[in-house]
Design a binder for these strands. Structure first.
Lengths: 116, 116
DNA sequence: ATATTACATGAGTATATAGTTATATAGAAA
DNA sequence: TTTCTATATAACTATATACTCATGTAATAT
């Protein structure tokens, strides 16, 4: 396995890592319908301002979201809508893994707001 | 945001977490062309036996891989081929994020073996 | 029965990460 | 300038995670 491959795996792993946190998924979900400022995201997510701010920074570092400063506010938005495809795939797999009947399965999927 | 939604986000985050480790991606990549036993995966990944064994357990707990014991050997295989779709999506996004020219971009993508 | 091979796991360490609290900074308004 | 609002960040704590080394266990071979 080459050094270059190792770097690729590290790169991909970091990307998944950015998505591997409930609060960050919640934030991304909150951005589904367009940009929001930090205060709005704090309300939506139910987290503290400091914590949300840190998560936003992590998401931005991973290029999942963009930041635009207007006045005293900072507006964040999704960089690439394809992340929702990722979430859809994962939701589909998780749902199909659940050993519950089809109706309950359907109910579970409908609770997943991380979709387009 | 309801309690149920919170559970969903936790669930999805755990799934991504399982994919957020270079060694585990390497192992999954090693399983692309079918089942392999632990010793084979140790060789492919370049990790220690103990460490690979632990990662295999994590991947199994996350239902990404299955285990079948035959004789003294344990054969692992991919549970759901759709994980490669995930990796493809991520690779595509990472590649398109890279601020390098198209040729280098292509070269990078070709090094990513986490594809079907 | 003993040895060997293949794998899993416990103990311990080091590092990373998420969270809180308090504080810093920056723009807008008074 | 001072104040207020919005956001970022530093310091700290708690927890999780990856890794190594040593050991346990289970199937096979001698």
């Amino acid at each position: 396995m080459s050094q270059l491959d190792d770097q690729a795996f590290i790169h991909i792993a970091k990307y998944f890592q950015a998505l591997a946190e409930p609060m960050r998924l919640k934030i991304l979900n909150g951005l589904r319908d367009g940009e929001k400022n930090v205060t709005e995201l704090v309300e939506i997510s139910g987290g503290t301002q400091a914590n949300v701010s840190k998560h936003l920074n992590i998401l931005k570092s991973s290029r999942l979201i963009k930041r635009e400063s207007r006045g005293t506010k900072a507006y964040y938005s999704i960089s690439d809508q394809r992340i929702y495809e990722l979430c859809n795939l994962v939701c589909g797999q998780i749902a199909s893994q659940m050993s519950i009947d089809a109706a309950a399965n359907e109910a579970f999927i409908s609770t997943l707001q991380v979709t387009q």
